[in-house]
Lab assay of single mutants.
Amino acid sequence: DHDVVPEDKFQETLHLKEKEGCPQAFHALLSWLLTQDSTAILDFWRVLFKDYNLERYGRLQPILDSFPKDVDLSQPRKGRKPPAVPKALVPPPRLPTKRKASEEARAAAPAALTPRGTASPGSQLKAKPPKKPESSAEQQRLPLGNGIQTMSASVQRAVAMSSGDVPGARGAVEGILIQQVFESGGSKKCIQVGGEFYTPSKFEDSGSGKNKARSSSGPKPLVRAKGAQGAAPGGGEARLGQQGSVPAPLALPSDPQLHQKNEDECAVCRDGGELICCDGCPRAFHLACLSPPLREIPSGTWRCSSCLQATVQEVQPRAEEPRPQEPPVETPLPPGLRSAGEEVRGPPGEPLAGMDTTLVYKHLPAPPSAAPLPGLDSSALHPLLCVGPEGQQNLAPGARCGVCGDGTDVLRCTHCAAAFHWRCHFPAGTSRPGTGLRCRSCSGDVTPAPVEGVLAPSPARLAPGPAKDDTASHEPALHRDDLESLLSEHTFDGILQWAIQSMARPAAPFPS
């Protein structure tokens, strides 16, 4: 592969990997390779389809078979030569091979799209000592099968071997295949498990690692696999990028399955594409389908809103127990993405979901129960707010008499603000006073009005108090039968009158 990737590009890729991570280095090298001529790309395919690569990765054979028959990708048995050289000459001794072996032994695996480039050397060096003999053996194999790289107009793939297949390693990572398949204008990513390549439709969760975000852009890794992070704060999961590491605690105790298979379609829109997988259930989501939507993949363990709600429900009964003089119970939860139609709101002032922060849900004790107040519409209280300059209440639009249902020339009671006709409430011909108009209920007259088809109010509507207090003497005590009587009149003013009279009014101040 030294004929494909020059030394300066190799060093530039290593520097970019240390600065921005393996995914960015892979993407940059792939983009550079696509700008080369067809001879360089053909050399790339020839390096990929060597015999030892085909033996190690069985899924490469179907890719090789898909090439046109007129494309010669065979390799000479006596060494490598550029395709432009007409004579089959043995190339001179390859010093770059020693360079590659020494550099890969030092860096474990470079971040390139060629056999030198995919593992994360920093994480491997940190986690190597417990498994040094086995990992050293794996390093000797890295130059042979560490990076199976493929690129063409139909298929483009980048393979990364790992030393996680050490025997006896619980939940060992089998390997990473960062794979971009450009077929019919689409893009897919796969993962390699035990020599087999699994596409998103049959993606397997190998051991402790999972394909957290099938994305090839942005600074985030394709698999949430930063070796420096180790395990999740809650004892979460091992990262795919942690090559040759000792077994780590796999999943939280509440995880239903340690080796679950995540779905390959969004649980909201039932469509495929780039998904984020939940650590607590097999569901996966688009970032845009979450509520609120996320802009980037959160670091650490992530769970959907259903799993978060289940966790909150487990903690909430203990938080609601009476604990005198104790601060509110704080339950730190990872930043969760909410699927459509589901929402768990945190306290005000918290950062938005999706940031690399930890939301704190506070379970406050329930407030003391209070008697429910009568629910009145805002339009129902409008007549009470229509007060004239002299303190006389004006008529609201649409006000109707509670007896006849007519809204023409209605009066407004100064005591309960109900609309009424003087002739309907006082049919006996009582003279109307000039000021202080009161309806039949507030004036103490319980004589029913002779209106055909309208039920008369119940005599129990009024329960006047002592006459010594004029204001308190007109406080009506309405009961269920009074409400039914008012409802039978089918008037809004009657219902409003009952609601206003049912509310307690402050006692009249004593004259000074």
Rank of each mutant, 00 (worst) to 15 (best):
365 P>Y: 15
451 V>T: 10
405 G>L: 02
456 A>I: 08
431 S>V: 06
296 E>S: 11
393 Q>L: 11
455 L>C: 06
303 R>F: 12
354 G>C: 07
262 N>M: 00
258 L>K: 06
442 C>D: 01
419 A>P: 06
417 A>S: 08
390 E>C: 04
445 D>H: 07
242 Q>G: 08
392 Q>K: 08
384 L>V: 06
332 P>C: 11
404 C>T: 02
466 P>D: 07
284 A>W: 15
348 P>Q: 14
483 L>P: 03
281 C>W: 06
465 G>Y: 13
495 I>W: 10
426 F>S: 05
315 V>K: 09
269 C>V: 06
397 P>T: 07
287 L>E: 13
354 G>F: 15
368 P>V: 05
358 T>V: 12
344 V>T: 14
254 S>W: 11
284 A>L: 10
327 P>E: 13
423 R>W: 00
326 E>C: 11
488 S>W: 03
444 G>E: 03
490 H>V: 08
321 E>W: 12
266 C>N: 03
367 P>D: 03
312 V>M: 13
325 Q>K: 10
261 K>Q: 14
312 V>K: 13
409 D>N: 09
263 E>L: 07
274 E>D: 09
383 P>L: 06
287 L>Y: 11
334 P>C: 15
365 P>F: 14
337 L>P: 11
481 D>W: 00
453 G>L: 10
457 P>D: 03
491 T>S: 15
334 P>V: 08
280 G>W: 13
286 H>N: 13
399 A>V: 08
433 P>W: 14
453 G>F: 15
426 F>D: 09
504 A>G: 07
306 S>H: 13
391 G>C: 14
285 F>D: 10
407 G>E: 02
441 S>E: 12
400 R>E: 14
272 G>K: 11
380 A>K: 05
365 P>D: 05
416 C>L: 02
425 H>Q: 02
483 L>V: 08
482 D>Q: 06
314 E>R: 13
304 C>L: 12
356 D>M: 01
284 A>D: 13
439 C>M: 01
509 P>M: 14
368 P>N: 11
399 A>C: 13
444 G>W: 07
335 P>D: 09
435 T>G: 11
261 K>T: 07
294 L>P: 06
357 T>F: 13
357 T>P: 08
255 D>W: 15
250 L>H: 12
300 G>T: 05
430 T>H: 07
277 C>M: 07
266 C>T: 06
400 R>D: 08
278 C>E: 07
269 C>Q: 06
436 G>F: 14
409 D>L: 02
324 P>I: 11
281 C>Q: 04
466 P>V: 13
464 P>V: 13
398 G>A: 13
500 I>H: 03
324 P>N: 14
325 Q>H: 11
419 A>T: 09
340 A>V: 07
424 C>I: 01
347 P>V: 09
307 C>R: 14
418 A>N: 05
318 R>S: 10
370 A>S: 06
